[in-house]
Design a binder for these strands. Structure first.
Lengths: 362, 362
DNA sequence: CTGAAAGCGCTAACAC
DNA sequence: GTGTTAGCGCTTTCAG
């Protein structure tokens, strides 16, 4: 059986080996080589060995791009997110990437900075790259034309963190209304009646007390929960104790200062995300106010620094990793089943009591 | 010119429109349609309009995957990173994604958790997906076989954050030796002579005082800088004041406690990254030691919480965004020029003095 | 200025 | 168990 190998043209070693090169070296057809390497169909034992040997000798790597074109699926998903360097999104992204990888998918990530036009562009680019599905953190609670095509979504889709009421699509979020309300109730139970709030929202350029219309669902849920719990306790919502601001640290710190500078200031503040928590802390430092004494504080989203700070900060925690994992799993199920199942989950929040809330009952 | 449109088969509206569909609707050839849409070659004005109209009517999206196969380039780069949810890497990633996008590239991100096998897998997957280049945060200072193929790298490549001495390839890092030395010198200038160090490294499973061999360059640079500056000041390096630990918060806090629990403890500690800074702070809280008084502290990498903490933490800052941007720019230049230019940059670190270092001169 | 046709590298019927 | 072959959707000479 030791026939002399055909004097076929040697593959130039400076180019990546292709399936045909492997087949040639192994002296089989492309189909057989493909079967051997793809581990499907049936291949003779010795043939298999020959092909594998040839492949490794040539350092062959499947050209997934060609396979994708043929198969019509890229095994890639797109993630459209506000800001990967944000402490919530970075962890969610971690979960998404890892979960996707477990299922053979890789993730293309694009930041939008909460800009709708950036989001629209991102979706277009990702669709052109033929991602098999999309996980989007929508920047607007209303605009979703770029997400629908005809009578369904442009691609398998999962919304993360923020809901779009008019869009019936799988959404992974948290019960922020409840979370904010629970925080207020804790404050009330400790004897606080003068409660303020620092709200992060991209819907506003400069700090203001007037509630913006275009806020995403997390913002309106948290504000709604705050207002509901205040009403429930027959407490007054005071606009001068509330500020809406962008996440920018300088601006949000300024907003916190505006709330606290007044003689007639609140005894407690709810910060609607980690950046706002830091902003309140910074403002307190500047104004020489002691957190947990002069100003009680509850933040949204836990972080290591929150439990290390003096005093440790009480927070409304969200299951970030779980959320990301869920989003990925949901999307992959959608892709695999080709069905437009839009199962939504609103995870519960958890109030973690530490020492940043002063007790006024005495 | 109003010829009746041919009764050609209508494109089924449930499938994505292809170039040929557009061409058909516009009554031109595929080549012409491609030219019109690709904005190259020459196309008659009215033809152009017809094609554009057809494309928009069909909601046509270029199939970039087909284009990539044809063109041999994917306009995608791969990022292989230890952990996207880490406060250094998330910001670097932000810079990379945004910079890449400015140049028409998208980014596929994979985490390795500093595992070499995960890194090898990641590189293989990315190469199979035919990324045009790779930005890698290498998990090992030695193993780089998976990054080279023949006499050059497996693809255009830039190393981020960590150098691999034996691999001559463009690397974006910082002068960590100098950064650590500067921190020690500051401590010395404030009268400290008993100085410890908490070192984050994946090369160690449990906290230990013995310096691991396999540490990446950032670790050995920082430790080296520490040792050099100590020697320069004729100070003794005390192994019981030094701990190597994984970034895990519980473990690193334990390690910090081990350093501080001793009666004979150091008066100052250098923490080699943000996680270690937090670990020292947590340990101090547990042991009822006041940062900036009982224990002076200098951390690596700045963060908002570092300046908001009481006292604000003195840190060695690195230009994270610039580093990410540089890595992306360097890689894209490499891709575009097809030349193996491996320009490396070691950015300077900056010591930001705040209030966590007690002054013993008096 | 426009069209015809040859692939890019792979997979999946379909034959043998 | 293995080979033949027809494309996936696009770009790009090469003619006209």
């Amino acid at each position: 059986m030791s026939s002399i190998p055909p004097p076929a043209a040697k593959k130039p070693s400076d180019k990546a080996a292709r399936l045909v090169d492997v087949a040639q070296l192994a002296q089989v057809s492309r189909a057989t080589a493909a079967r051997a390497l793809g581990g499907y169909g049936t291949v003779g034992e010795d043939t298999l060995a020959k092909v594998l040997a040839a492949a490794s000798q040539l350092n062959y790597r499947t050209n997934v791009i060609a396979r994708s074109m043929r198969a019509g699926r890229s095994l890639t998903i797109g993630l459209v997110i506000a800001d990967i360097s944000n402490s919530f999104f970075d962890r969610a992204t971690r979960a998404i990437i890892d979960t996707a990888a477990e299922h053979g998918y890789q993730v293309l990530v694009i930041n939008t900075d909460d800009s709708l036009t950036a989001e629209i562009d991102a979706v277009r680019v990702l669709l052109e790259k033929r991602v098999d599905g999309l996980i989007v953190v929508p920047s607007s609670p209303h605009h979703h034309e770029h997400l629908v095509g005809g009578d369904s979504t442009v691609a398998p889709l999962v919304l993360l963190d923020r809901r779009i009421p008019e869009l019936s699509v799988g959404t992974i979020s948290t019960d922020d209304h409840h979370g904010a309300a629970a925080a207020v109730r804790l404050l009330v139970s400790r004897g606080h009646s003068r409660i303020g709030m620092l709200v992060a929202t991209a819907a506003v350029a400069e700090p203001t007390s007037v509630r913006p219309n275009e806020a995403v669902s997390t913002v309106s849920d948290r504000v709604g929960g705050f207002i509901a719990a205040m009403g429930e306790a027959h407490l007054q919502y005071r606009a001068d104790w509330v500020r809406y601001t962008s996440v920018d640290h300088a601006k949000s710190t300024l907003a916190a200062q505006q709330i606290l500078e007044n003689e007639d200031r609140p005894t407690a503040i709810l910060a609607t995300n980690a950046d706002m928590t830091l902003a309140v802390m910074d403002a307190c430092r500047t104004l020489n106010l002691v957190v947990g004494h002069d100003v009680s504080l509850i933040g949204f989203d836990d972080a290591v620094w929150a439990r290390v700070f003096t005093p440790p900060i009480t927070v409304v925690e969200r299951p970030v990793y779980e959320m990301g994992r869920s989003a990925a799993l949901n999307l992959i199920a959608q892709i695999d089943s080709r069905s437009a199942r839009s199962e939504s989950i609103a995870f519960p929040t958890e109030l973690i009591e530490r020492e940043s809330v002063r007790d006024f009952r005495a």
